[in-house]
Simulated assay, not measured.
Amino acid sequence: MNHSQRLAKAQEFIWLHARLLDRYLFAYHFAGGDKKPVLGALRAYQNEDGGFGNALEPDKRCPTSQPQDVETALHVLDDIDAMHDEMVTRACDYLTTITTSEGGVPFALPAVNDYPHAPWWVADENPPASLNPTAALVGLLLKHGIQHPWVETASAFCWQAIEALDSTEFHTLMPVITFLEHASDRTRAEHELERIVSRLLKPGVIELDPHAQGYVQKPLDWAPSPDSFCRRLFTDDIIERHLTAFAERQREDGGWPISWEPISSTVESEWRGRVTIGALRLLEENANVSSQR
């Protein structure tokens, strides 16, 4: 299947199944659409307190603000080069209100327990600060030079937590890498990145079988674009094999599947819309590089 055929099938899936935000994102990335409709749709997920909620991250249906939804919002704004929108300042103000004494924000807040959610979305009554998502939030803000008092406070937490970290867990390390890629202290950041590389290179940490099933993280999860920090860990041959297998995972309905059990058919559709846009962008970015070799 060529690029235009793959895109046409994906477009039909997006129009049939994806939520409004993702339909606008698809139009922005692949049909010459404007970013204004994306911003309007995203704004609907922002609450009065400045945080984001309302199942912007679909696996939990909590309407109140959650740290992970703020991260999702920042990724959307980063993707459309709109990180200087006023939504960001409001979100930083909100993050200040939920920052723990440690200096970071929790993985989730207790309100998540009161609504339908996936099994991993459970929060204690007084949850501690977590690198996921604090490091990702700070990293995205640093990337765009966002000035806010919260950035300094949360950065201090990240440095302390990262220096004590010895994890190979994907959802911990990807936020950490985002932070380290954009931290101003490059000597300190490069030292920690090298420590991460030494852990990731151990046998069995990254799933190298392009056809492996289940919730596993493969090279393209760690390094979706040629500019990704982790791309240095893989040969061109490994990336090409995984790109071929990745493209083949597009289903007959035009969308890409998710690799975990959704809590409802609606949640599955919402996730598949988001994942399908990500898949198309991944293939497009990597095809551009491959064609230049």
Score class of each variant (00 low, 15 high):
Y28V: 00
D185L: 08
C158Y: 01
S228I: 03
G214C: 15
L25V: 05
E181G: 12
P175M: 01
C158L: 04
A111R: 13
S167F: 01
D85F: 11
L193F: 10
Q46L: 03
D81K: 12
K60Q: 15
A247Q: 08
R251D: 07
F30Y: 01
V275L: 03
I277G: 01
G50P: 08
D34P: 00
A27I: 06
H191V: 13
W256H: 08
P133G: 06
P224E: 02
L42C: 00
L42N: 03
W120T: 02
F13M: 06
V216Q: 10
V138R: 00
V88Q: 08
A73Y: 05
N126M: 14
T153P: 05
S130R: 10
D49E: 12
E163P: 09
V112Y: 05
T72D: 13
D59A: 05
T64Y: 09
F26D: 03
L283W: 00
S198T: 15
S130T: 14
T168Q: 10
I239Q: 06
E261V: 14
G278R: 01
R272W: 10
Q66R: 06
A18D: 00
D227G: 12
K143P: 08
R231D: 02
W256I: 02
L220K: 04
F52V: 04
E190F: 12
E268M: 08
T100R: 11
F246H: 09
R186M: 12
V38I: 05
A189C: 08
A154W: 05
A91C: 06
L74R: 03
L220R: 06
L20D: 02
F170E: 07
Y45E: 00
H182T: 12
P128K: 13
N126A: 15
R61F: 14
G145C: 12
N54K: 15
G214W: 12
I146W: 03
D59F: 03
E268F: 03
T178Y: 07
H117M: 04
D59Y: 07
A183Q: 10
T187V: 15
T99V: 12
E284W: 07
A164H: 14
A111N: 09
V197P: 06
E248V: 11
A18I: 00
V112Q: 02
R6Y: 02
V205T: 02
V76A: 06
A118H: 10
N2W: 10
E57F: 02
T266Q: 14
E252K: 10
E48L: 14
E207I: 04
G50I: 03
Q213N: 12
A31Y: 04
P226R: 04
K35L: 01
F246C: 05
E194V: 09
F13R: 00
M1P: 13
V151F: 04
N132C: 11
S198K: 14
A73H: 00
T178P: 08
A279P: 03
V216D: 11
N47L: 15
A108E: 11
S264K: 11
G50E: 10
V205W: 00
L201V: 15
Q46N: 05
V176F: 04
L141S: 08
